[in-house]
């Protein structure tokens, strides 16, 4: 009897505690990301990995992982480093890059094919930001439309979003990480937020924003009350095509598979075949031409002898 009472009271008190904690906004978003690649990455992939690692102060970069088939071993590795996210770069054939995002230990796992990589080193990006500042994550409206996109959004949020109070994070916000869906792919961009003096002619342009800013300035924030935001790209940029979502962490049933994704190997093979096709067609044509000539008795070098016996040697024999 006493045990029953105890358990009951315990559960009730637990509930109370939960509600209290909800009220007091004592929330902990503890994320750690294990960032690593397989063997056989190119320098570009490696630089992209480094860029992402630089952007994620809650990340833990590890040495190259040796296997491409036994990915479930990553679970143990992540546990070893106290990570609950894994960002794994799988390089195939020294050119194709697949990116795995996984929530360890309970899943899900999302596998992407990465294309159009541009690293931060490239000179056409002019922006810069603090190392480890928390980004604002900007998601396309399309991310709310489909369940698989919602799931991907959540995974990105936990992987790329620097948790509040992360160890090496900086207290100011100076970049936006944007994810957009277009053409069935996810396009990732990283922009610096640069606050510039608002031009005087522009004030009529967005009144709502202005008012908001006025409010905020009233609430006691100095600095940049009269500034507008400019975005300057920092890099890196890449495009991700979702391929597969698994329910577990590097395992489990497949709950999403993208039919529209065609493997780069297939595309390359197709190109090669098309190229070979031209040769085959030409040879075919040649063969046909030869056959036709044969039919007409025009085989080269073997003209038929005149049947009427009008050869000079015959005539003047």
């Amino acid at each position: 009897m006493a045990a029953v009472y105890k358990s009951l009271s315990k559960s009730s008190s637990k509930e109370d505690k939960e509600t209290e904690s909800n009220g007091a906004v004592e929330r902990k978003n503890k994320q750690r990301v294990l960032i690593l690649s397989s063997r056989g990455v190119t320098y570009r992939h490696r630089h992209l990995l480094n860029d992402l690692a630089a952007m994620l102060p809650h990340g833990r970069k590890d040495a190259k992982f040796d296997s491409k088939s036994k990915l479930y071993q990553l679970n143990e590795l992540a546990e070893l480093y106290n990570c609950n996210n894994v960002l794994f770069f799988e390089a195939r054939k020294g050119k194709d890059l697949y990116m795995w995002f996984s929530k360890v230990p309970n899943g899900p796992t999302v596998k992407f094919f990465a294309q159009n990589l541009h690293t931060m080193e490239e000179l056409h990006f002019q922006g810069n930001c603090l190392k480890g500042s928390r980004p604002i994550l900007s998601f396309d409206g399309a991310f709310e439309s489909e369940p698989y996109l919602r799931l991907i959004k959540e995974v990105f949020m936990q992987t790329f979003g620097v948790p509040q109070g992360a160890r090496k994070s900086k207290p100011f916000i100076d970049h936006v990480l944007s994810f957009s869906v277009a053409d069935g792919k996810i396009w990732v961009r990283n922009y610096e937020i640069r606050e510039v003096e608002r031009a005087k002619g522009e004030t009529g342009n967005d009144d709502g924003d202005e008012q908001q800013e006025k409010k905020s300035s009233k609430s006691g924030h100095k600095g940049g009350k009269d500034t507008d935001i400019n975005l300057i790209e920092i890099g890196p940029r890449f495009v991700l095509t979702p391929i597969v979502i698994q329910e577990g962490a590097f395992g489990g049933p497949i709950i999403y598979e993208n039919k529209r994704f065609i493997s780069p190997n297939k595309i390359r093979a197709e190109l090669r075949r098309a190229k070979a096709g031209r040769h085959v067609a030409r040879m075919e044509q040649q063969r046909e031409a030869l056959a036709r000539r044969k039919q007409l008795g025009l085989e080269d070098g073997k003209m038929k002898k005149d049947p009427a016996g009008l050869d000079t040697r015959d005539l003047f024999a």
Partner: peptide
């Protein structure tokens, strides 16, 4: 710090 835009890009 997540913003979902109102419209589809």
């Amino acid at each position: 710090q997540t913003v979902v835009s109102s419209k589809r890009t």
